[in-house]
Simulated scan of single mutants.
Amino acid sequence: MPMQDARQKLTWISCHFNEMTPHHVYSLLKLRQQIFIIEQECIFPEIDGLDPLCDHIIALNGNDVLAAVRIVGPGIDPDHVEQGDRSAIGRVVASENLRGQGIGRQLMLRAIDHCGQRFPGKAIYLNAQLHLKTFYEGLGFVQFGNAYEEDGIPHICMERPAPAEG
C-alpha cells in the first residue's frame, strides 16, 4: 500500500517483486546499475535471480524509483550460508541527489520494520560496506567476523539480533 512522505515528496511502497509494475522494475534495476556498477565501479551479476523471490521497499517519485532495499527471507539465498536462519536486507540503494537527507535511515527503518512484521522473532543479516559500519550500528546492527573485500570494497557481516520475547 503506497504511503506519501511529504518531506521528501516520495511515495513508499512495500511489496513483493510480483506486485511491482514493469516500470518500477525497470527503474529499480536502472538505479541499482547506476549506483553499484557505474558509480561504485563494481562489475558483478547484479541481476542474480533473487529479486523475484524477495520483498522490496521502494521510494518513488512518480514512477521513478529513487531509493530501495531488497529483503531476502530466511533460507532463500543458497549462496550466502552465513545468512543462516535470518532475514536479510540487501541491495540498499539511494539516488545520489537524495543522499545526506536522511533517506538511508528512513529506508533502513522501513526495512527493519518490514522484516519484523514478515519474519517475527528472526534476526536480520546484512553485508555492509565497512565505511557504513557506524550508520548500521546506530540501527542496532553488530559486526560479526572479520572485514573482507567484495568487488574491491571492504565489507563486514552484521546482524541485528531478534527482539527479546516478553
Rank of each mutant, 00 (worst) to 15 (best):
G75V: 06
D151C: 10
I156S: 00
Q34T: 14
Y26D: 03
I103P: 02
P120M: 11
D151T: 08
L139M: 10
A88H: 00
F119K: 03
D51Y: 00
L126M: 05
L132T: 11
I112E: 12
W12G: 08
G138Y: 06
N61Q: 15
D64E: 15
I43W: 09
L107K: 07
Y125Q: 08
D5Y: 02
C157A: 14
P45L: 12
Q143R: 10
G75L: 06
I153H: 05
Q101V: 00
E39F: 12
N97E: 13
V81T: 14
I43E: 10
I37G: 11
V72N: 00
V69Y: 02
H16P: 01
P120Y: 05
L66K: 05
I153S: 04
A68H: 00
P22N: 13
A59Q: 01
L130S: 13
G100H: 05
P161V: 02
E165V: 12
P2Y: 09
E46L: 13
R99E: 09
H56G: 02
G116W: 08
Q34R: 05
H24A: 00
R105T: 15
M3I: 15
E165K: 12
F135D: 09
E96Y: 07
I112V: 15
G121E: 11
F119H: 07
G152F: 04
A68S: 14
L29M: 14
N97C: 12
H56L: 04
Q117M: 05
V142Q: 05
P163D: 14
I58M: 00
V92Y: 01
P78C: 05
M3R: 11
L98V: 03
Q34N: 06
F135H: 12
R118D: 07
G90T: 08
Q117K: 15
D151Y: 04
P52L: 11
H56W: 01
S27Y: 03
R160V: 04
I103L: 03
G116L: 02
D48Y: 03
T21G: 09
L66Y: 02
Q40S: 08
V92C: 10
I47V: 09
G104Q: 03
D51L: 04
A123V: 01
S95M: 01
Q40W: 02
T134W: 07
M20C: 05
D77R: 11
E149V: 15
Q106G: 03
P154C: 14
G90K: 00
G145C: 01
P154R: 02
I37S: 14
Q8E: 12
N63M: 06
Y136R: 12
P163K: 06
I153T: 01
R160F: 10
Y26T: 06
Y136D: 10
A147C: 13
E165L: 13
C115Y: 00
Y26Q: 11
R160T: 02
C115M: 03
D85Y: 04
F141M: 04
I37N: 09
G138S: 13
K122W: 08
G90A: 09
L139K: 01
G140A: 04
K133G: 06
